[in-house]
Design a protein around this nucleic acid. Sequence first.
DNA 1: TATGAATGAGGATTCATTCAT
DNA 2: GATGAATGAATCCTCATTCAT
Lengths: 226, 226, 226, 226
Amino acid sequence: MTMGTPKEISPKEIRKQKRYEAIIDAAEKVIFSKGLEDASMDMVAKEAQLGKGTLYLYFKSKNELYRAILYRAFLSLRRKFLAALKPEEVEGQGEQKKTGLDGLKTILMVYLQFYHENKDYFNAILYFQNDLFNLEDPAANEKVYLEEGIAAIELVIEQIEQGKKDGSVRGDLDAATAAYTFWGQTMGVLQLVQKKMIIVEHYHQLKAEQLIAQHFEIIVSFLAKR
Amino acid sequence: MTMGTPKEISPKEIRKQKRYEAIIDAAEKVIFSKGLEDASMDMVAKEAQLGKGTLYLYFKSKNELYRAILYRAFLSLRRKFLAALKPEEVEGQGEQKKTGLDGLKTILMVYLQFYHENKDYFNAILYFQNDLFNLEDPAANEKVYLEEGIAAIELVIEQIEQGKKDGSVRGDLDAATAAYTFWGQTMGVLQLVQKKMIIVEHYHQLKAEQLIAQHFEIIVSFLAKR
Amino acid sequence: MTMGTPKEISPKEIRKQKRYEAIIDAAEKVIFSKGLEDASMDMVAKEAQLGKGTLYLYFKSKNELYRAILYRAFLSLRRKFLAALKPEEVEGQGEQKKTGLDGLKTILMVYLQFYHENKDYFNAILYFQNDLFNLEDPAANEKVYLEEGIAAIELVIEQIEQGKKDGSVRGDLDAATAAYTFWGQTMGVLQLVQKKMIIVEHYHQLKAEQLIAQHFEIIVSFLAKR
Amino acid sequence: MTMGTPKEISPKEIRKQKRYEAIIDAAEKVIFSKGLEDASMDMVAKEAQLGKGTLYLYFKSKNELYRAILYRAFLSLRRKFLAALKPEEVEGQGEQKKTGLDGLKTILMVYLQFYHENKDYFNAILYFQNDLFNLEDPAANEKVYLEEGIAAIELVIEQIEQGKKDGSVRGDLDAATAAYTFWGQTMGVLQLVQKKMIIVEHYHQLKAEQLIAQHFEIIVSFLAKR
DNA sequence: TATGAATGAGGATTCATTCAT
DNA sequence: GATGAATGAATCCTCATTCAT
């Protein structure tokens, strides 16, 4: 960010950027605690200690503000993926080679961890998942958040392809198809766990961990099959 | 509900029941065409040709009305499951024995068909799935719809257990755990297909059918494993 | 309901009608004192001592409310026309025959009086006059106020035709054309008098009455020409 | 304005004046296309490629900006009057003598032409006409636009007086009174034509041209009377 | 001079629910 | 039982104007 030379960001720009982030911070605080629908722009403005109009200087609608949060959510998720995938440098041995399957397991683990530790961001993604979405309508620059999400999924695709190459993953898969299917399945299971576990527990005495473990097993055993 | 004396339902009761159903009919028409949020009680009342107050004699809130629809959705789904599972009586041969695995495949197929042919009910279920749910809050009698949903899942559980017995399904599964996991995964994949396929198609040129087929393969191959 | 005599308005209907009028009363009070733009529905509701929502039970928009006022304005104007045109029964002599020209003079006088004594209604009409109007958009039943206005103008047309017949008005006129032209001219002069007299007085030391008298003379002398 | 020393206008002054006009240009573009209410200062600033604050260096309010447009409108109208009144120099014959009545006819024709060809400016004047006006409130220098309007009317006054002298116009008129009355009448008829012709056409099958011709006839016949 | 970031008041409308009749 | 009139909270967004830089 502090690039050194070429760009020389003006202090004005910096202040602007800070405020931008501060508004998202405030929005997160309000939206995560009240829910998107029940959070009003007034509340966000108050939380951010800014005039309501100022919010609209930075985000042209409440939805845009939500998308900024979504962007953060996807970005955070992808970064965790990347961090976890980065070959660990174990002391004295250099890099550890990881198979594609290992990578996929890692991603899955990270996802579950993300679900546990970043419930708010996870819910933002979940909300998005359930939102009917029209690709055409928004100006191109508003789709950044979307591309961040796609980028996260592409990491899964890459690992599947890697696995196909290194033999850790069955070779007959279409990587993209499999990746999206896994994605959907995983979101579905976590949604169930997140929103309906009380019922499941009540009627069948199951624990979230069981479902998650089962899901994990299904995916991994499928990938590795044969 | 009116157990005890099965016969002698007063004509009053009958009229009441008819009106009850008529209101749900009206609610479905309105809600399915406008969406839950955008459908007002006024519209439902008009559609049902009843006073708005009357609605509240039968359903104590808009949500209750939605739940009645949800009940129908689950009921419809379960009936389709049952119908498809009923051993076909092929002429002259008596019943066809079906393995648990066959039953599970059938259920999955029926589910997919349900998704295609009953989008409205499917969406009702999907909406419910995404709704934070608190078991405690509603009066006991409002949970009927829930139990109908549970009953549908229990058909899955039964088939898994049947499969374990007849050897068509791997024996190490916990039936309930697997059933809920499958349920979650399936809802997740169909949610993705339903709400985000435009994006998936746009970025990775996939078709809904591919994801669904992949999902089907994952589940079946897992069940049958070994 | 209580049939008896064909019309027999139910007390409910009466209450409804009363409230309807009461709302318009309140709206007039608020709108005439603050101006249409600056009058809020809240203020009207408060003035009417009703919930804001109730207003919308009777008028489906603020504009509709304004139109109800406009209707009253036109109705009031037309009634004054009618009352003034009604042949006076002078004691002992029976009806006075009035020529068309007399009728037109009467209408003009009444209009001027209306301008003086019903400034608020006059301004409502003036505002309407300056409002771009689209015939197509409103539901038919919303145009009642318009037809009331048309009816007022038609009285002018009738008098011109009457005058052509009885010879008091020049015979080469197209009654409708003349009537609308007079209407436009009169509104224009009164608008000037109403809104810009201060300026006219300041720069040319004229009085409203002079302009009005001049206008009167122009019209009458034209009508009677030859 | 800058009388006194006609020469030596500093380049600074020139730049200032240019910018001043450029802002009005931008304002016209925006206001004429969106309407006064719907045009925002932001839009004007963008159109003028200036900072929003800069606008306020040249015009102390949005209204002031509108008045500058109004000034142009009146100026344009008056210039057209002047141009049309200027005695034509027909080749070989020297100047044509024109009577006052001719001049008044000319002015009326020009006005109608102005209405047709400069609808935007005409509407600006119309809007002004309908605006309640308070002579006291504005700083003296803001009334320039007003005086431009007055100047236009004074041309009418002059022509009436000229006509009284040369016998083409009846001698018993008060020139100022008549001029303002004509002005009001004309604005009224054109307002009707501009805003309500759809209705008039709908209910009485009249055409704008008919009303305008009728108006013309009324005025001219009145002026020339006897 | 020029800028443009910040402000915050302001308003029409909808709708689930109640309750007197 | 039926009704439907009444309620009033709740919310997004715009925009003229100011003022620190």
